[in-house]
Amino acid sequence: MKITVKLFAIFRNDRFKIEDRDYPNETTVGDVLTSLDIDGPELGVALINGRHVTKETVVTEGQTLALFPKVGGG
């Protein structure tokens, strides 16, 4: 299945900003992180369609997954 992955802040270094990528069915957010060589604890926020999800969340065909390291400001 195809999903769109968006990366932000230092996750973009040596990777990409946005990419359509192929994954098998039942792929989780954690599986996507592994495929990108991002360690679980580095993850700050994962959003699918603007909603917070966890590493265990299963991604489905056509969804957009946005991945952020731990960031803050204000």
Binding site: I10, P69, K70, G74
Partner: peptide
Amino acid sequence: HPVTGEGLPIYGTNVLINI
């Protein structure tokens, strides 16, 4: 802490626009 040790020094508070 990744926010004060890494995110803020590199991108500043404006890192918030995208999230």
